[in-house]
Design a protein around this nucleic acid. Structure first.
Length: 261
DNA sequence: AGACAGGGGAGTG
DNA sequence: CACTCCCCTGTC
C-alpha cells in the first residue's frame, strides 16, 4: 500500500530517538510496535508500507497533525527556526502508552543503543515471536506479563528492574486509558505516582503516547540547549509560556539540534 | 585494565 | 534544594 505525505520525513521521525524498536535495511525500516511488525519506506512524497493499514500509519506517524500550523506557532526566534529547518519533516510518533512507559523507565541514565537492547530483550523474554517476510522479532508484552525480577534483570535493565516489576504489577490498560483522557498536568501527576517515573519520564509518556503536545521533557540535552540559547533557569515554565500548546514539538526540534552539533 | 559517564529517580537530611 | 546510590554498558 502507499499514501502521499506532506511535511514528513520518515528517516528524521524514526531516528530522532523518540521511538526505539525499528531496524533499517537500506531504505526500508522494519518497525515493531506492541503486537505489530510492519515495513515502511519513503520515496519523496510517497510512503510505501505493508503489514498494517493506512489508518494505522496515519495514526502512528501523526500524519493528521496540522504540521504547518504547529511550525508557525513555535517559530518564535532564529534559534528554533534553525532547529526546525535542520529537521524538516520530523514528527512526533503516537506510541502505545504501555510500551512508551516501559521504554522511558529504561531510559534513565542510559543511551539509545542500551534502551534498544533492553526493550528487545524484554520482547524476546516475554513477547511472542513475530515474522514479516525475512525479518523476525518479538511482540512487546502486555501489562501484567513482565513478571519475575530475575527474568527482568536478565534484560540488562540494571537498577530499573525493580521499577519495571512494580509498574507491571500496578499499571493496566484501564489505568492508562484513564490517564490518557486527563488534562496534561493531571496526567503527568498520575504518571509520577508510578515507581520509577519522575518528571522527565512522565513528560515523555505524556508527549509521545498521550497526545499532550504541550509537554516539554527536560533532559540533559534540553538543559544544554535552553541554557545556550535562552539562558533560562526555570525551563519548564518558560517553555510552556514561550512555545505554547505545541511546546513538545519545539522540544523535539531543539533536542535534535543540540544533539547533532 | 580500570575509571568514568551516559536521555533520571528515589530516598534521605 | 543538595546529596548519594541505584545497574549496566560502551569508551577512552
Amino acid at each position: 500500500m502507499q499514501i502521499t505525505v506532506e511535511n514528513f520525513s520518515l528517516h528524521k521521525t524514526l531516528t530522532c530517538g523518540q521511538f526505539f524498536r525499528y531496524w533499517q535495511e537500506k531504505d526500508t525500516y522494519f518497525i515493531a510496535h506492541t503486537d505489530k511488525l510492519f515495513k515502511v519506506k519513503q520515496q519523496k512524497n510517497k510512503l510505501i508500507f505493508s503489514g498494517v493499514n493506512k489508518e494505522y500509519i496515519n495514526n502512528f506517524f501523526r500524519l493528521d497533525d496540522p504540521y504547518k500550523k504547529i511550525i508557525n506557532s513555535i517559530s518564535k526566534d532564529s534559534y528554533i527556526k534553525k532547529a526546525i529547518s535542520e529537521n524538516k519533516g520530523l514528527r512526533i510518533i503516537r506510541q502505545d502508552p504501555w510500551e512508551c512507559l516501559i521504554s522511558y523507565i529504561c531510559s534513565s541514565m542510559a543511551n539509545i543503543p542500551k534502551i534498544q537492547k533492553n526493550l528487545n530483550l524484554i520482547a524476546k523474554n516475554y513477547g511472542d515471536k513475530i515474522e514479516f517476510e525475512d525479518f523476525s522479532t518479538h511482540t512487546f508484552p502486555e501489562p501484567g506479563q513482565i513478571k519475575d525480577l530475575q527474568t527482568i534483570r536478565a534484560c540488562k535493565v540494571g537498577y530499573r528492574a525493580g521499577y519495571i516489576e512494580h509498574t507491571n504489577r500496578k499499571v493496566d490498560r484501564k489505568l492508562l486509558r484513564k490517564i490518557s483522557k486527563m488534562h496534561y498536568t493531571d496526567a503527568k501527576k498520575e504518571l509520577m505516582k508510578i515507581h520509577g517515573v519522575g518528571e522527565k519520564v512522565a513528560d515523555c509518556v505524556c508527549l509521545f503516547s498521550m497526545d499532550k503536545l504541550e509537554a516539554f521533557p527536560v533532559d540533559v540535552w534540553i538543559k544544554r540547549a535552553m541554557k545556550k540559547y535562552y539562558s533560562k533557569e526555570n525551563i519548564r515554565s518558560f517553555a510552556k509560556d514561550y512555545f505554547g500548546e505545541y511546546a513538545g514539538y519545539a522540544n523535539q526540534f531543539l533536542f535534535q539540534h543540540i544533539r547533532n552539533g
